[in-house]
Amino acid sequence: MTHCTASVRAGYTRACTTLLISALLTLLFMALPGQAQEPQKLVRIATLDNYYPYCFRIPGSRPRPTERLEPGAESDQLAGFSWDMVRTCLHNEGYTIELHVAPWARVEHYVRNNMADIMFPSLITPARRTAFAFSRGSTDTVNIVMYANAPMTPVPKTMDAFAGKKIGVMRDWSFGPMWEKTHTAVRHPVDSILHAFQMLAKKRVDAVIGYEKCFDNTLSETGNANTFWKSPSFETLHGYLACRASDSFSQNVLSAFDRQARRLRKTGVIDRLARKWSVPVPLLRDATP
């Protein structure tokens, strides 16, 4: 019995020693330069899905509040030029994207309340400038126009022709400095682009303000491409990535986006994306208006 017990103890000791050596070798291997894996770079991005051709829902796709997209992966529900540009730039920088799709008011709420890191495409407004930091590169270029049942006579570089008129305005969307300075028009909030044109057709509003390509697409899809008069462009605007001004991590993400946007511009990738979606190449400049 004594000999048997000693043998068992010796075997147990050898097994423990072997396990200890194996564990130490594993730790040593993990500590060698170049062997340790970097922590995953995760950025939470919020955007909308009713802004064709920049960010829009893929027809027939199942709505998902969030998606997790590692570098190289594509969304099952979101498409468009701005999304392609943002996704490509940040994936090239090694970021995994946690995508949040929501109406714009909720998108901005997510970022303000640290439920998301980045939102796009965001116009720079006086109210946002105090709370957010913006990328230097833009993600879209849009023309602001008015739609009406009958021709109006716009005054160049002003919206004076719409004084006293009831204007259909997408709820929580921004339409640029010229519109923000217009206090003589009566704003009538609407919940969708289609709703805006339905109100116009029923003459419940006198005109609708909109982003030309986006609103034209809704008219085309509903068979109303030539139904309404459209003004010349009042103003050309640019959207940007935005984050909380106090958030250093997200500002580093903006810098990564700008770095890749400049590189992709030089290599022709952004030009090819712009041709694919039939949009202007966005400006890569300082975000200050």
Rank of each mutant, 00 (worst) to 15 (best):
K213M: 13
T88D: 10
S278M: 07
D140G: 00
S61C: 09
D286Y: 12
R262S: 06
A116W: 11
A161H: 13
F120C: 08
V142N: 05
L32Y: 03
M146D: 05
R171S: 07
F257D: 08
I97T: 14
R171L: 12
I209Q: 02
P189R: 00
F197H: 05
W104P: 06
R62W: 00
P189C: 01
T2R: 11
V208F: 08
A10M: 10
Y52F: 15
R263N: 12
R265G: 04
P280N: 12
G11A: 09
R285D: 15
A36M: 04
L69Q: 08
C4D: 11
G268R: 04
G239R: 02
R68P: 00
L283C: 13
M152A: 01
K202W: 10
R262A: 08
D49A: 11
R259Y: 09
G137P: 06
R262K: 08
M30V: 02
G176Y: 04
M152T: 01
W104K: 01
P156L: 11
C4H: 09
N226M: 07
A201P: 00
S75I: 12
L283E: 14
N113I: 01
Q198T: 08
A116R: 09
Q198D: 06
R57A: 13
D216G: 02
L284I: 15
F56I: 04
V155L: 00
T47P: 02
D84F: 01
T66I: 11
V145I: 14
F215Y: 15
C89S: 12
A161M: 14
I209T: 02
E221P: 00
V253Y: 15
R262H: 09
T182H: 15
L32W: 06
E98T: 09
W83M: 03
H188V: 13
P53M: 05
G94I: 13
C243L: 03
S61N: 08
Y95G: 03
T141M: 06
H183K: 14
A46L: 05
E212Y: 08
V190K: 02
G176N: 03
G176H: 03
R272W: 00
E212R: 12
I58Y: 08
R136E: 15
Y12N: 00
D247I: 02
R171K: 11
F234Q: 03
A261T: 11
A245V: 14
H3D: 12
Q40K: 07
K181F: 07
I124Y: 14
R68F: 13
G137R: 04
E38W: 03
